[in-house]
Structures are given as structure tokens and as C-alpha cells.
Amino acid sequence: MKKAILLAAVLASLGGVQKLWAQNRSFQQEKIGDSTMVTVLVPDAIPALSQPVFVSRQEAEKWMADDEPVLGLVDPVTGVAKAYSLWHLDRHEIVNDRIGGKPIAVTW
């Protein structure tokens, strides 16, 4: 877990990664199609959310900022609207959720 946090911190500091990249070209690389896939972290070092919990707007007002960027979705069946803070998605990159009975993934 500690290692994962450290790796995530390294990823967040892009300058750091670029330096690491210059110093020792140890990232695993793999040619796919016309480009290269590069491994910078172990799988799940950034934890996707798979049991998302939702709260009411009133509850969310305690910690949402007006200028906070969100991704918004409306369930085509029930009309229920859902907002996902991009500042929060930044920490997870993927939320596995459901809308209109369909499995969806919100990705950032």
C-alpha cells in the first residue's frame, strides 16, 4: 500500500517522472500499432471506485465548491441526475457505476 501511495505521488509529480525517465529508462515499453505503451505504475496503484456512494445535493454542498468541475449524467429511464467531481475523479480515474440499469464507467 505504501508503495502504491509513493508511486501515485511520483505519477502526480510529472517533473519527477520525467527526471526518472531521463535517469534510468527502466519503464517497460511495448510497441502496439503505431505507438508505444509504457508501464509507469503497477495495476491498481490508482484505485478505481467500484462501490460508489451517492449523497443528496444538500449533503454535498458541505464540500462541493461552486467552481468545481463535474461530469454530469442523467439516467434516461428514471431521470435521476448524478454528478461526479473531477477533483475527486482525479484520485480514482475510474468509477464503475450503473445508470438506467446499465453498467457504466465514468473515466477521467
Binding site: P52, F54, V55, S56, R57, V74, A81, K82, Y84, S85
Partner: peptide, 9 residues
């Protein structure tokens, strides 16, 4: 969407 749900953070 005044009744929106929000992903808890």
C-alpha cells in the same frame, strides 16, 4: 438538476 445526487468524496 436541483435534485442531483453527488458522488461522495
Amino acid at each position: 438538476h436541483p435534485d442531483t445526487l453527488v458522488l461522495r468524496k
